[in-house]
């Protein structure tokens, strides 16, 4: 993704995607008139604007591609490992917080996110997870009085 052409192509695709969703999911919303706008009026304007931006960015990509744009940015690679494990950790927390409570879901989320980086040992990951789970089980529900279930609802 380091070349500007590929970057622009992807950016244009994102713009087109949002435009499509607004058109498609907004199709059933009444448009109304300019005086009495319905709920679909502004989304439709937005979808048209997004389509225009998508076309501009795509045109920019084509021009850059034709010119074989020499400017390449020095960049580090995408951290797929980071995205995968941090994403998995956060989603696991979302899934488990209600059935399992804070303590258990914190342990699982921390172990998963810690896999995004190298550690000395598996033991280190679990120690960290245990410490953070204990810390947050004590601080958030009790010290800050947030209404979080610490243990599964069965207990």
């Amino acid at each position: 993704m380091s070349s500007p052409v590929r970057r622009d192509a992807l950016t244009a695709a994102i713009a087109a995607f949002f435009s499509f969703v607004l058109f498609y999911a907004g199709a059933r919303l009444p448009l109304g008139t300019a005086v009495r706008m319905g709920p679909g009026y502004v989304p439709r304007l937005l979808a048209i604007a997004l389509l225009a931006v998508a076309l501009i960015i795509a045109a920019r990509a084509v021009i850059a591609w034709r010119q074989k744009h020499p400017r390449q940015t020095v960049d580090f690679g995408v951290t797929w490992k980071g995205v995968a494990f941090i994403g998995a950790g956060v989603l696991a927390f979302a899934l488990l917080i209600q059935p399992l409570g804070l303590a258990a879901s914190a342990v699982i989320a921390v172990v998963l996110t810690s896999l995004a980086q190298t550690a000395e040992s598996l033991r280190e990951r679990f120690l960290l997870a245990g410490f953070l789970a204990a810390f947050s089980s004590l601080v958030f529900p009790f010290a800050l009085e947030l209404p979080l279930p610490v243990l599964p609802p069965l207990f």
Binding site: I86, V90, F93, I97, A109, V110, T113, S114, L132
Partner: peptide
């Protein structure tokens, strides 16, 4: 490597 999981966990708790 200890800070990252801690920050992510606190973000999860905060968001929830």
């Amino acid at each position: 490597r200890h800070l990252v999981p801690a920050i992510i966990l606190f973000c999860c708790i905060g968001a929830y």
